[in-house]
Design a protein around this nucleic acid. Structure first.
Lengths: 265, 265
DNA sequence: CGGGGATTTGACACATATCAAGAGCGGTGG
DNA sequence: CCACCGCTCTTGATATGTGTCAAATCCCCG
C-alpha cells in the first residue's frame, strides 16, 4: 500500500513518444494514480457494485495505464499473460488466427470492458487484441487482483460475474453464427452496438463504426461484400441511414423484429 | 465446517425413485461423501493441481450428487443459479433457445467438465443443459466455492483457469462457425471428441456418439442432412468408419490436414 | 415383432461467396 | 491548397455450398 502511495505521490509519466519502435516489450505505460472510485466508467467496469472501502482496495490495484495507438496490438497470441486490461478510452478488436492464415474477429471492446481473460487458463494469451483507434487501458496485474479478491468478497464476485457474462455473450455469438441469416446477424450487431453505446451515455441511434466492413464481416461470419450489400438494403428499406462509417438507426423496432420471428417464410 | 462434517457422518440418501414427477424443483439428490481426493476424474476436474490440505478443503465442499436421466434437464434457462455441476458420469448438451423457437447446441459436456458458469453473471441460468444419457453430477454450491477459494489460493486459481479455458473454447467454436466449411467443421468436431476421450482413458480412435445428427448439426451450424452426407463422404474416402452412432477414426492425419491448410483451391 | 424416430440419399432451391470493376474518401506530399 | 494514391466501400454478374423437401431404409425400444 505504501508502494502504491509512493507511486501516487511521484507519478512517472513516460513521454508520449513514438521513439522506441523496436522495444515492443516496453510499451508506453503511464504510472499515475488512476481512481476507479472517481472514474466515469465505474458502473460498467470492474468496480460496478463496489462501495467505500472495497473501492479503495481496488484503487490500490489499478495504478498504471497504457496507451495503444490505432492499429497497434495490446497483446498477441503467445504473449505471456500477466495482466487484465480495462478499456479506458478507445476501441479494440480481438482476433483469433488459424494456422492457414484465416483469422476471425471474436469481439469488439468498448470503454469499461475487460480484456485479457483468455490468458488465465494457459498463462499465455490466446488471441490478438488490436486498437481500432487511439486508445487507453488500465492495467490490472492479475496476481494482485486474485490477492485482493481474497480479501474483498464483493470484488471476487464482481470479477466472476464479468467472466460469466463473457461466457453468455459468447453463446450469443455462437447462436448468431450458427443459426442466423446475414440480415439477422447485421441487425443483431447494430442493436448490440446501439445498446452498448447507450450504456455509455452516447446516442442510441447514431454512432460511428470504428471497424471496417471486412472486420464486421469477420465477426459475423460473412464476407465484406455481403455486409456492404445488407447495409445498402437496410438503407433502401429505411431502417438505417449509412454513410461510410456513420450509422443512424431509423427504425429500431423493425430491426428488433428481424430477430424475434423470421423463419416463417 | 462442523455442519459439513455432520453431513459426512450422517449421510442422507434419498431413495432413487421416480416418485414425484411433479416436483421438478426437488430433483433426485444423493447426499454421500464424495471424495474429490480419490475421484478418478480429479486431474480433469476442479481439483486439478490441488494437493493435500487444499484437496481436503474441496472435499468439504462437494458432498452431494445428482442423477439426471437421459433426456432430463439438469437446469433450464431462467432457473435460479445456485450451484455449479461437475459431470461425474454420462454426457450432457447445453442449448440456447431463441424466442422464435430456434435453438442451438452450444456445448457437449463429458465427465470431469464443469457446467453452470453461465449463471454467475445474472444469478439465473441462461441456457438449458440436458443429459444425453443417464448421468450423474457433483453439486458445488457456488457461494461455498467462493468462500473456499478465498482461503485456498490454488483453488481460486484453478477455478479461474477453468472459466478462462471455457472462454478460449468458445472462441474456437466461433472460429469454426465463422470461417470453416462443413467438412472442416465435422473434422474439427471428431478430432475434438477424440482428444477428450483420450484424456479420459478411452480409445482415441473409436467411440460412440451420444448425440443425434441433428444435435451435431446444431452445434456445428449445419443441417442434419449435411452432417449425414459428410459422414458418408468421410466414410467413402476411408477417413472414418461410421455405423450409426459408432465412429472409428481410420486416418487421424487426414482429418487434421483438413484443418491446417484448405482454402488453396 | 411392430412402430416410430433417426438416418441416409436424391433432386432442386437459394443464400451467400467469389470475381470483377468502378466510385468514394482520407491522408500525404508537393 | 490541391492533386494524387491507396484503401475502403459499393455494386453487378456468376458460382457454389449448404439448405430444403421428399422418400426410403434402418434400427432401437417397447
Amino acid at each position: 500500500m505504501s508502494a502504491v502511495a509512493l507511486r501516487a505521490v511521484t507519478p512517472i509519466r513516460t513521454i508520449p513518444m513514438k521513439a522506441q519502435p523496436i522495444q515492443a516489450t516496453t510499451p508506453e505505460v503511464t504510472k499515475v494514480r488512476t481512481q476507479c472510485s472517481s472514474c466515469g466508467l465505474r458502473e460498467l467496469c470492474l468496480p460496478c457494485g463496489l462501495s467505500g472501502a472495497e473501492l479503495d482496495r481496488l484503487d490500490e490495484l489499478v495504478y498504471t495505464r497504457r496507451r495503444v495507438k490505432k492499429g497497434e496490438s495490446l497483446y498477441q497470441a503467445g504473449d505471456a499473460f500477466k495482466s487484465l486490461y480495462a478499456v479506458r478510452s478507445g476501441f479494440f478488436k480481438s482476433c483469433v488466427l488459424l494456422e492457414d492464415g484465416r483469422d476471425q474477429v471474436t469481439a469488439f471492446h468498448m470503454p469499461g470492458e475487460l480484456i485479457g481473460m483468455d490468458g488465465i487458463g494457459s498463462d499465455r494469451h490466446n488471441n490478438n487484441v488490436v486498437a481500432l483507434e487511439d486508445s487507453e487501458v488500465c492495467i490490472i496485474v492479475f496476481s494482485s487482483l486474485e490477492r485482493a479478491s481474497m480479501e474483498v468478497p464483493a470484488l471476487q464476485r464482481q470479477f466472476h460475474k464479468v467472466m460469466s457474462r463473457e461466457l453468455v455473450r459468447d453463446q450469443g455469438v455462437m447462436m448468431l453464427l450458427g443459426t442466423m441469416r446475414a440480415e439477422e446477424r447485421l441487425a443483431s450487431f447494430l442493436l448490440n452496438l446501439s445498446q452498448r453505446f447507450v450504456a455509455r451515455g452516447y446516442s442510441q441511434t447514431e454512432f460511428n463504426l470504428r471497424m471496417t466492413r471486412e472486420e464486421i464481416g469477420s465477426y459475423l461470419g460473412l464476407k465484406l461484400e455481403t455486409v456492404s450489400r445488407i447495409f445498402s438494403r437496410f438503407h433502401e428499406e429505411g431502417l438505417i441511414a449509412v454513410q461510410q462509417k456513420n450509422v443512424r438507426i431509423l427504425d429500431v423496432a423493425a430491426l428488433k423484429r428481424m430477430l424475434g420471428r423470421q423463419i416463417d417464410h
